[in-house]
Design a protein around this nucleic acid. Sequence first.
DNA 1: GGCATTGAACTGACCGGTCAGTTCAAAAAG
DNA 2: CTTTTTGAACTGACCGGTCAGTTCAATGCC
Lengths: 201, 201
Amino acid sequence: MDTSPRRRATRTKLYEAAVTLIAEKGFSSTTVDEIAERAGVAKGTVYYNFASKNELFEELLRHGVGMLAQSLQQAADTALADNGTRVDALDSMIRAGLEFIDRYPAFTQLYVAELWRTNRAWQSTLRTLRRQVVTVVEDVLRDAVATGELNDEIDVQLTASALVGMVLVAALDWQAFQPERSVDDIHAALSLLLQGRVSGS
Amino acid sequence: MDTSPRRRATRTKLYEAAVTLIAEKGFSSTTVDEIAERAGVAKGTVYYNFASKNELFEELLRHGVGMLAQSLQQAADTALADNGTRVDALDSMIRAGLEFIDRYPAFTQLYVAELWRTNRAWQSTLRTLRRQVVTVVEDVLRDAVATGELNDEIDVQLTASALVGMVLVAALDWQAFQPERSVDDIHAALSLLLQGRVSGS
DNA sequence: GGCATTGAACTGACCGGTCAGTTCAAAAAG
DNA sequence: CTTTTTGAACTGACCGGTCAGTTCAATGCC
């Protein structure tokens, strides 16, 4: 069963082992033997729990993106329930995104590395998952336009992409090149950009 | 000689073949045989021209990033020489970035996919190349702060990352999901974001 | 012009090694 | 007794890199 606690634990161990290895070396140079070894599990166990290396990876993606989308959605909901504006909601989502990346940097690396590839087996899976994330942002943007909080000339889809990209790249650079800085610090810098308070003194 | 016209042509063919294949499938699942085949060249020729698969890839990266950095720098210089503001220069760089991605989408995909990996042979090469690009943006930002054109509270490094990320992700999404749109169109949407004219009606 | 020589450039069959995936008997866990 | 894990053995495909041999444009010579 999927819900057997024992099996669940094994799968989680395999996810964790796979995510870091694949983030480091890429999917195809990561071997199943390595994954099993790092998870502290026999190779046969991998194939008892997943049909193939590919399937292990796809479920890993689903698992990670599910967590991210949920975390973003919750951030937006909380901000709005708390009498915040839509821009406050966006700001909360930026923070939630940063916290996610801080907690699961390997997953983020791997996601970015695979998202725009063509001709991959899991390409359609990945596109579906992308929508799951971007839609959350788009919805808030659309709402903000509807309520007059944002300029109605903005291109919702593209702006959502750009915002996601802003957070993604800034956060990955942060992790890679200035890991000593705090989430607050990074969040403040990006907030400034979101609020358009970059221009002008 | 490196400058032998024949060799030059062969190398160019190999770059072109390699860049699309690696963008599609990633470095390690792209085989040297495939690269040679697509370039219309024998496998031995690859090894006559490059010491290894790795070196071919590194030189490919150097080649591509060089073009990008030059194009960005030129955009900034032209805008400034044309009596533009620093923000105009940033806007021009956004456009130059979009045009580059439009012309070399495969290279961009590959760059993004490899940039944040750890434990890779070419990691240090890639970091050096990243600086080459980001520095151009940072310089303009710093200038803009010095002249009072931008808020002096901004974090130059992080803002530069964020801007690059914004363009990168928006452009890749554009290519992948709405390829029919024009550069002008995308540029306009991102300009709006840069100028902070998103907020307010 | 015709002919020989040179060597950079290219060729492609081949080799040693690696890896995904399969199988299974036996043990452990619950 | 059932479910899950173990771990080792095996297979067949694939792949990076090598190298002895071939091609051919340029050069020099008569």
